[in-house]
Amino acid sequence: MSKPRIATCSLAGCFGCHMSVLDIDERLLELVDVVEFDKSPITDIKKFDGRCRIGLIEGGCANEENVAVLRAFRRHCDILVSLGDCATMGGIPALRNLVPIDECFREAYIDGPSTHNPAKIIPRDVELPLLLDKVRPAHEIVRIDYLLPGCPPSADAIWAAVTALLSDKPIDLPYQLIKYD
């Protein structure tokens, strides 16, 4: 039987959750024995190769590209796990939800203290993904099966969750592993 496949992505996140995945240390070797990594920044595979058992979603959705990637994950993965506070609640990128979007653009491209933009141009190239009105947690865009909070979730929490999912057991995390920070 072929090994179950895992895919991961970093949407509007900081890669901290991926660092925490790597932080499972030598257990990574155990993991690669039993799973195959598909599309993921860890493998640098850009396109899905096949049906995935688990998709780990880091980050919420800040722009249309995030939405497209997240929807592709939903299509290709049996189980989606929101990994970390950005995916589960919006996280740090959602700080911009407190500021109207044109103010965000002005601050980023014109008024920012380290910005040099004498022509005061706000880029509108079609190559640039359009920003959403608000940064949104993943479950506001697609159905998410499990939420694993934390900034980032600890390596132990990720390990416990992934191993439980791979063995068809319910995720039963001890109190100490659930954190919002």
């Binding site: 929101s82 919006g90 939800n97 608000k134 947690p137 109190y175």
Partner: peptide, 16 residues
Amino acid sequence: LAYRLGIAAPRYESIW
């Protein structure tokens, strides 16, 4: 309390 009640994330949309 959220930890004690086992809340992984609020189910409602944030008002911001």
